[in-house]
Amino acid sequence: MPERRKPPQPSTGRPRPSPGASRPRANPPGVSLCRALSKLGLCSRKQAEILVAEGRVRVAGKIVRNGSMRVDPGRDRIEVDGSRVVAERKVYLMINKPRGLVTTRDDPQDRGTVYDCLAELDLPFVSPVGRLDKASEGLLLMTNDTRFAQRLLDPASHVAKIYHVQIGALPDEAMLARLRAGATVDGELLTARSIDVLRSGTSTAWLEITVDEGRNRHIRRLLGAHDVEVLRLVRVAIGPLQLGELAKGKARHLTAEELALFQG
Rank of each mutant, 00 (worst) to 15 (best):
K97I: 13
P171Q: 09
L176Q: 05
T184I: 10
D186I: 15
V102D: 03
N96W: 07
P98W: 12
L121W: 04
F148L: 00
L123W: 09
D122V: 11
L118E: 08
I95H: 11
A149K: 01
V85F: 00
A135C: 11
D212G: 10
K97N: 03
P98T: 02
N216A: 06
M142W: 00
H218F: 08
I167M: 06
M94T: 00
E208T: 08
R180Q: 11
L123I: 07
G138H: 07
A205F: 03
D81Q: 12
K134T: 08
R89L: 11
R217M: 04
L118Q: 11
V197Q: 11
K161H: 08
D145R: 00
R89Q: 15
T113G: 02
P128S: 04
D133E: 06
Q109Y: 04
L153C: 03
L176F: 04
Q109T: 10
L101M: 09
A177H: 05
L190K: 02
V185T: 01
I209P: 00
R84E: 14
R99M: 15
I167T: 01
M142V: 04
T103R: 01
V86H: 14
W206Y: 10
G130C: 04
A119C: 14
E173M: 10
E208V: 07
P98R: 06
I95Q: 14
T191W: 13
L179A: 10
G168D: 10
S157Y: 08
T104Y: 02
A183G: 11
I219R: 02
A119M: 10
R147P: 01
L140I: 02
L93N: 06
